[in-house]
Simulated scan of single mutants.
Amino acid sequence: MSAKAVGFPVERDAVLQLVTVIVGVIVGLTFLFGFGNVLAFGVRLGVSGSVAPLVASVVDLSVLALVIAIRQLSLRGRLRRGDPTGADCCWSRASSRWP
């Protein structure tokens, strides 16, 4: 049953924009939360006050880059073991430890 059938005149683009905004807010708040945690941890370890924010942002951005890279590899089918193109990502074909 669609939203129009129930009586809600909702456009698809408006819904997509709303979902995008909500996801953006969640990602932003998560970034700030992680930034604060790493910043507090760095200060507790004795990192200088001018360097700690730089380290905290680098840690958050590197985790974000890793997640995006894994997502892109999985979308392109490059994370499958035994890929006939030879693009087995980071592990060796001779490795028997990887399932």
Rank of each mutant, 00 (worst) to 15 (best):
I22F: 09
D83C: 02
G34K: 09
L54A: 13
D13I: 11
P9Q: 08
G86P: 01
S62F: 14
A3I: 04
P99K: 01
S62M: 12
L18Q: 10
M1H: 06
L73D: 09
W91K: 00
S62P: 01
D88Q: 01
L75M: 11
R44W: 15
A5F: 09
L79W: 07
L75R: 11
S2T: 10
Q17I: 09
S57A: 14
A56E: 01
L29P: 03
P99R: 03
E11C: 07
Q17V: 08
S50A: 14
S95T: 05
F8P: 03
L73A: 12
A65Y: 06
V47I: 03
L32F: 08
G7Y: 01
G36Q: 04
A52T: 12
L75P: 03
G36M: 03
G34F: 15
A56W: 01
V10F: 08
L61A: 06
G34S: 15
L18W: 10
A94L: 12
D60L: 12
G77I: 00
W98H: 07
A5D: 14
S92Q: 07
T20Q: 07
L39H: 03
R71W: 15
R80H: 10
R81C: 12
I26N: 03
W98E: 10
W98T: 12
P9T: 08
G36T: 03
P53T: 02
R78D: 06
V21K: 14
V63A: 11
N37T: 09
S95L: 09
A3R: 07
P99N: 02
F8V: 06
V19D: 10
L79T: 10
R97A: 10
G49W: 15
M1W: 05
E11F: 05
T85F: 00
G86Y: 00
L64K: 06
A94V: 10
V25L: 05
V19Y: 14
M1F: 07
